[in-house]
Nucleic acid binder design. Structure first.
Lengths: 221, 221
DNA sequence: GTATATTTTAATGTATACATTATTCAACGG
DNA sequence: CCGTTGAATAATGTATACATTAAAATATAC
């Protein structure tokens, strides 16, 4: 019973966690050796993790200046939501075309139920987690592995910002309705409806969050 | 006058080249130490390059089995073209909305001219290069940096396959017409036309190439 | 006092040695 | 002869030492 997970993997997960939780704040710089000390390992696996996180757009290696945790500007948010809008709409369309059974759409339905339940308890964290689940499951059944990966990457990039605005936004009741209608369209095999409903859903989400950022003068997160 | 480019960067570029040129064939396995020897450097920078190439979807590190150059199946091609279709269509729409001047659209027009010229000389390699240029410039003026990066990644993933089918496909005269019409729509600020024309262009390209792969029984490239 | 040249410093980039571990191969028992 | 166990092997994963180089600090000239 030794630890069999490679250190580079531990570094990756732990750095991701610290970025998402804000322990490594947006815009902050960190030396490779600092991070290595904090994680209790040598620079080698840390560097490998940092390289991976760099290609996932979460940080940037700046020679001699340390690793910079990338802040996310309103413009970044706009870009990210645009990408998610296009690719998830495709996923919704393809999911509808695939003719899934109710059984196969169970996880999607369950995610919506969780959102409803969380909303009833006014548990926004749980709602956000279930929302993530819905979107992840949607792209999964869309059947395009590259879309899955890109969507995960984009979601990671906005995670901090999304958490910050979670308590500023209006109660997401409309959002839950949207999800149900998308699921219905998929279940009925109505591909174009699924696509356009989901597109609208994402476009509204984008407008809402960009608006929030401007109202609260949040220039980067 | 010493070489100031880091070895990891050299490794990255050189490995990319060897993958695209087929010197590292699809499906082949290679030890880190082999690659390091071939490139005349130690394993460290090679490993770093390999990690980057892995997150770009060009190869996979398989513990104890070496680095596998990822083959591209018809299904992969389908996924990649679907992603490009969505994101480039978005770029075309946004480019049209941006109201660029003729000056600013010059590079796009030049790419089309190059395609025509190459086609006149029946220089397919040059045509493909100019085609790449057109698509790269289109996403660039689309104004979404993430779309630029993702499109570049997807293009890299299909590069080998595209080169292989280049001499099997019909003369791409239709393709050049498509490009001109897309450029016209962008120049006229007709966003929806630009979007739908480009979508159609990509959908046809996808159908053509997938068809070619099946006809020639190309299961992976 | 300011600008420039030079030294020093500190961080990254790289090589190498070593630890770990999956795989291979051989020995052994059935 | 086949399957299982265990040692040998070989590849990756990691630590560390060192080389390189950009930035900072100091000295020097004007």
């Amino acid at each position: 019973m030794t630890k069999s997970t490679p250190n580079s993997q531990r570094a990756l997960q732990e750095l991701r966690r610290r970025i998402f939780e804000g322990e490594l704040p947006a815009g902050s710089d960190h030396l490779e050796s600092e991070l290595a000390d904090q994680l209790g390992m040598s620079r080698t696996p840390v560097r490998e993790a940092v390289l991976m996180l760099e290609s996932q757009g979460l940080l940037a290696m700046r020679p001699r200046k340390g690793v910079r945790i990338l802040p996310v500007s309103p413009e970044d948010m706009s870009e990210i939501y645009d990408v998610l809008t296009e690719l998830e709409s495709l996923a919704a369309e393809r999911a509808a075309e695939a003719g899934y059974t109710h059984e196969e759409l169970h996880d999607l339905a369950k995610a919506i139920d969780k959102m409803d339940a969380a909303l009833d308890r006014s548990d926004l964290e749980a709602w956000a987690a279930a929302d993530d689940l819905f979107h992840a499951e949607l792209v999964r059944i869309g059947g395009n592995r590259r879309v899955v990966m890109i969507a995960a990457m984009m979601t990671d990039q906005v995670r901090r910002a999304r958490n910050t605005t979670l308590y500023m936004r209006p109660r997401p009741t409309k959002s839950n309705d949207d999800h149900r209608r998308v699921l219905d369209a998929i279940a009925h095999g109505d591909a174009q409806t699924a696509r356009s409903l989901h597109r609208l859903h994402r476009e509204e989400a984008k407008a809402m969050i960009i608006d929030l950022l401007h109202k609260h003068r949040l220039r980067f997160l």
